[in-house]
């Protein structure tokens, strides 16, 4: 049995080109993979997709006619997720979409729709969370710098928010896991790849302001109502590393773990 494996370049445009090609051929793919993460199998027949912006635009137009805006947003969000086999899930969702058209998102109990909704939701929730949990630090040259480490690639979903929030500031957000950096230089934000980035010196005032914020954070809690479990539920520990107010606690815990 031969399996047809479609390889695309890992971009959203690439994935849409692949879907467009598959849709034209009208045959079921064995798998759709980004080039980097494909492991060859014995009976695999490899078809490499060349990303074609024109074809993608055509395909997107068709999708926009067939589906509602919200379904397209779901697809993009799942693409940003780090879940395994998301490409095939998107393919199945789109396939079902061509059958059901605008009513696609009504099929909540269908596995294909459920998968997309669940993972789109996860990405949206993390993006929303990061809009609050990003912490900028002021550098000596006045730029604002924020490192983040997220489960999913939410950077594209949050930069518009920050460029509206701080339009007249120079800032950049660094996705450490994915080695991406979003830079806003007084105009609009753009995302770049970055290999090694060493954080420059923080500004003179920064330490003082961090201290005031940490004090505020400590004092605003009502001790009689202490509920750390609830705190962790909203602000899971994996985000603590770059949170100014939790840094102290995070570092203390790491220290005691390694040097008891």
């Amino acid at each position: 049995m031969e399996r047809k494996i479609y390889l695309y370049d890992g971009t959203y445009t690439g994935l849409l080109t692949a879907l467009s090609v598959i849709e034209k051929k009208r045959e079921k793919p064995g798998n759709i993979c980004p080039k980097g993460s494909y492991r060859p199998g014995l009976f695999d027949k490899i078809i490499t997709i060349t990303t074609d912006p024109a074809e993608t635009a055509d395909f997107l137009n068709t999708l926009e006619k067939v589906l509602v805006r919200r379904s397209l947003d779901h697809i993009f969000r799942v693409f940003l997720s780090s879940v395994q086999h998301k490409e095939m899930a998107i393919y199945r969702y789109v396939r079902l979409g061509f059958e059901t058209q605008k009513k696609l998102d009504y099929f909540l109990s269908d596995e294909r729709v459920k998968f997309i909704h669940d993972h789109a939701r996860k990405v949206s929730v993390e993006a929303h969370r990061m809009r609050g949990l990003v912490r900028f630090r002021e550098l000596q040259d006045g730029w604002l710098y924020a490192p983040i480490e997220t489960d999913h690639y939410v950077l594209p979903l949050i930069i518009r928010h920050f460029s509206q929030r701080l339009p007249q500031k120079q800032w950049f957000i660094h996705d450490i896991k994915r080695k991406k950096i979003a830079i806003h230089n007084l105009t609009y934000p753009r995302i770049f790849d970055v290999k090694n980035y060493r954080v420059p010196e923080l500004s003179f005032k920064e330490a003082e302001h961090q201290k005031i914020w940490q004090e505020y954070f400590k004092n605003i809690a009502i001790k009689d109502r202490k509920n750390v479990r609830l705190q962790r539920q909203f602000m899971p520990k994996r985000y603590w590393k770059y949170l100014t107010e939790m840094e102290v606690i995070h570092n203390e815990e790491t220290c005691t773990r390694y040097h008891p």
Binding site: R131, L133, L166, Q168, A221, K226, N227, Q231, Q233, M235
Partner: peptide, 25 residues
Amino acid sequence: KLGMTVLGGICHSWSSDGRCISLLK
């Protein structure tokens, strides 16, 4: 010019009593 508000609101942190910190109270 400095800042905007989002219709749904945003929580920025949670204090150790589990209440959210959104505004500088």
